[in-house]
Amino acid sequence: MQDFLQFAVNALAMGGTYALVTLGLALLFSVMRLINFAYGVLITAGGYIMLLTTGMPWILQAALIIVGAALLSVLMERVAFGPIRGADGNTLLITSFAISYLVQSVLFTTVGSRPRALVMPDFLTGSLSLGGVSIDRADAATIVAVALALAATSAILKWTTVGLRVRAVAEDFTMTQLIGVKPGPVLALSFALSGALAGVASLFYLAKGALVTPTIGNELILIAFVAIVIGGMGSLLGATLGGLLLGFLSSGLQAVLPLGVVQYRDAILFGLVIVMLLVRPQGLVALKGNKERV
């Protein structure tokens, strides 16, 4: 029981972190068919912002990281993606690779490739005892933060005018404009929201290892893309569920695999993904509601 609860908390924290990233990526895909490999840059940027602000109260660091990632995301849109809006998916994808490598190269030559240690506050280190069950403080904090971030995102999309416009652009870009909605601000807001999610993910993803390197965001992004494919391309709910599911699978394998096999965890995990895609290539959540009832 103790083991199971620890596993569940750990899996939920890991899946939750993935879910933030998959939601952030799916948001961009749904509004402009962009597969943004440069998204990892935002995770990495969160780490360096934390490094630069060492000594500040954590809550202030967190705010700077979330706002910073949102602004960097909007900057990407303004400088790189906005001007080629409407180009085909490949062009957008390659642009995102270019941004990713550009930023990494700049980081390598300026701060260097050496991992830098991050100072984590007390409430994100060690473990706490909950009714006899010992759980990681970082995991508990991650779960709370993920729940808040997902709730805030869905509230914005569901209840605000800008959220309504983001969804409209995702469904029918041309018709949204024909109604009289200017697309620029809607795309900027989508990137800001997506960037803020990366900021939150960064805070808790980096808390585990307490290290930052110029490529730290990449691993997370790769896993997130797999999760998006599992969940269903273009569906925000599907992407979020895909992230959670992959976290659970990954933690589950970690827990049940015997010692000699556990180093093959990722190989087994991605093998399962291939099997799942053979069985259900459209992902878990296929888009519905497009059919007309006559």
């Binding site: 409209a168 018709m175 497009n290």
Partner: peptide
């Protein structure tokens, strides 16, 4: 436009 173009999931 032809084909109405309502937003189906909204």
């Amino acid at each position: 436009p032809e084909g109405r173009h309502v937003f189906p999931r909204m």
